[in-house]
Simulated assay, not measured.
Amino acid sequence: MYLFMIIKGSSLCRSMLLAVMSMALLGACSNSLGDVPDEPTNLPRKVNVVVQEVSPTELRDVVVLPGTAEPWLSVDLAAETAGRVEKLSVREGDRVTPGQILAQIEVTALAAGRARAQAAFDLFEEQLRRRERLYKDNIISEEELDQVRSGKVQAREELRQAEIEYGRGLVRAPGAGRVNNMRTEVGEFVDRGQGIIELVDIDKIKVQVQVPEMDVRFLNVEQPAAVIVDAFSEQTFSGIVDFIAYRADPATRTFRTQVVVENPDGTIRPGMIARVMFVRQVIPDAVTIPLSAMIDRGGERLVYVEEDGVARARNVSIGVIERDRIQITRGLEPGDRLIVAGHREVEEGTAVVVQ
Rank of each mutant, 00 (worst) to 15 (best):
M21I: 06
M21F: 15
S22Q: 09
M23R: 07
M23P: 00
M23D: 06
L25R: 07
L26Q: 10
L26N: 05
G27Y: 11
A28F: 12
C29E: 01
C29P: 01
C29Y: 15
C29L: 14
S30I: 10
S30E: 06
N31C: 13
N31T: 07
S32K: 04
L33G: 02
G34W: 05
G34L: 04
G34M: 03
G34S: 08
G34C: 11
D35P: 00
D35R: 00
D35S: 00
V36S: 12
V36K: 14
P37E: 14
P37I: 07
P37G: 03
P37N: 05
D38Y: 14
D38Q: 14
D38T: 12
P40V: 07
T41V: 09
T41S: 13
L43Y: 12
L43Q: 15
P44E: 15
P44D: 11
P44I: 14
R45L: 09
R45W: 06
R45M: 05
K46L: 01
V47S: 08
N48V: 04
V49S: 03
V49G: 06
V50N: 03
V51A: 10
V51K: 07
V51I: 12
V51Y: 07
Q52K: 06
Q52N: 02
Q52M: 09
E53I: 10
V54Y: 03
V54E: 02
S55W: 01
T57V: 11
T57A: 13
E58R: 07
E58C: 02
L59C: 09
R60M: 03
D61C: 06
V62D: 13
V62Y: 08
V62H: 06
V64E: 15
V64I: 15
V64G: 13
V64N: 14
V64Q: 14
L65P: 08
P66E: 07
P66V: 01
P66A: 15
P66F: 04
P66I: 03
G67A: 02
T68P: 01
T68R: 11
T68E: 09
A69F: 08
A69I: 02
E70Q: 13
P71N: 14
P71A: 15
P71K: 13
